[in-house]
Amino acid sequence: MKTGLGATIVRAGRRLLSSLPALFGVLVFTFLLMRVLPGDPAVFFASGPNAGKEEIEQIRRQMGLNKSVPEQLVFYLSDIGHGNLGRSMMTGQPVLKDLRERLPASLELTFTALLIALIAAVPLGVVAALRPGSIVDHGVRLFCALGVCVPTFVSGLLLIYVFYYLLGLAPDPTGRIDVFTSLPPQHTGFLSIDFLLAGDFEGWWAACKQLVLPAVSMALFVIAPLARITRASMLVSLGSDFVRTARSIGLSWRKVVVTYALRNAILPVITIAGIVFSTMLGANVLVEKVFSWPGVASYALDALLSSDYAPVQGFVLLMASLFVLVNLVVDICYGIADPRVSIE
């Protein structure tokens, strides 16, 4: 085990290094893409539709847009090297500050959604695998198909309609917390955790209530792949020789299913969960819009629509880095869960 963990860390470090060129590529590609897309930010940010040519030219100069594209790229890269992602024209704030304020909201939402999805998907997959072809199996399949078929904004709106409008159980879907609650001192940026740290249980409950609906509508979308992969790998696991061995020595049903079959079956689920998490981070813009959630995805969408270069580039860089980080975490988890990987 000791060598296994060490090898895993070395492997993860190597993986991290090898992803740096890809990150750089993402950086340059996004930069060029933004320059190719139609729309002139200078026109957009001029005082009004009647702004004169000189004014626009002046703004272009201020923004450095009069220089050639390679020159702009060099400036951009050197800025990034200094930790400066530029300034958003929409908010007037540095992009780094904007992202730092909004990222915890997105992460909190995505983590919660993933947690809900896993808690639902793994048992569903296991139950389906234990009785393949049964009514339970078909029920799970139907549920998964529905989750994938219904787009998140539709399921989100449905959830709002039922739980807010009809039943009145959920609070109004406007952001992370209602305006009257005072915010806790910021430690992690995750409201639910910060409230707990501050000992404010009322605030915690309020934040959780806000979180549930958007998280569930996001989770519904990813339960299907997670449940399917759990079912498939559980079937393989249950049919394997070592499960037969476990049965041959009379182990209890629980031990056979959980300790022998499920622990082996969970390995591919870890990989898929990592991929799902990365996809959710980028794709949750719809949910953020529907629930007015102040996250990074909706921020980037707004910036993109108004040709605001810096936030979009910052957002893409952030997503790419997160993707690398998530893969790293998956690698380490996998290395701990499976003693065999350190061998290769």
């Binding site: 070592f242 037969r244 022998y260 622990r263 082996n264 390995l267 869960a337 003693p339």
Partner: peptide, 8 residues
């Protein structure tokens, strides 16, 4: 080899 649990 297959008859033994690979991760235990």
């Amino acid at each position: 080899r297959a008859a033994l649990n690979p991760i235990r």
